[in-house]
Amino acid sequence: MTPNRIVSCLICLLLAGAVQAQQAPPAAAPPVANTAPAGADGEEAGDQDDRAWRDTSAYPFGALADTALRLELVAKAMQLRDYCADRRVQDEFVRERLRRFSALSGRPEDCRSLLDY
């Protein structure tokens, strides 16, 4: 199975899950408790109310941009795994690509860590 076909299958699975989640009845969100300490002034209580309306902890999926980034990282990791496995590819080229991928993923990457994707 080619890497492009695998990525296409992953995208289809994620989209199918998103469609299924949209068709499911929404779950009741847990009530957000006011965690303001007793005797807090109105400004602190107002700040907590401002944060409460933006609570997304009950969302079944993250933001679309986050999903797109994870799919992009999976595709790049698969390509890098192929570079790591191919002895004809120069070591310096692989190291440079791993450095760039580390900058995107936000963690140190090597050929073994690519198995996490």
Rank of each mutant, 00 (worst) to 15 (best):
L13I: 06
Y83L: 13
F101W: 04
V74F: 14
A85S: 03
L10S: 05
D82M: 08
P108M: 00
A103F: 10
D110L: 04
A58C: 04
E92G: 01
G42Q: 03
L98R: 06
S105N: 15
K76D: 12
A45F: 00
R87K: 01
P26F: 06
D116M: 08
K76R: 15
A21Q: 13
P26N: 11
L73V: 01
T56C: 12
A52P: 03
A68Y: 14
L69E: 06
A40N: 04
P37K: 13
D41Y: 01
P31S: 09
P3I: 10
D91N: 07
I6C: 01
C9H: 10
V32H: 07
A38Q: 06
S113W: 01
P25I: 04
D50Y: 04
I6K: 07
A85I: 00
E44K: 02
A38N: 05
T56F: 11
L80Y: 07
R99H: 06
A24N: 04
P3K: 13
L64R: 09
P37R: 09
S105K: 15
A29D: 10
A40G: 02
V74M: 05
S102A: 02
D110T: 05
V94D: 11
Y83V: 04
E72N: 13
E43Y: 10
V19F: 14
A24Q: 12
C111P: 14
D41S: 13
A65Y: 09
G46F: 03
E43D: 15
E72M: 12
R51F: 15
G17A: 10
T56W: 11
F101V: 03
E92D: 15
L13N: 07
W53C: 00
P3W: 09
Y83G: 03
R54G: 00
L73A: 11
R87F: 05
R107I: 01
Y117D: 02
D110R: 05
R5A: 12
L14F: 09
C111F: 02
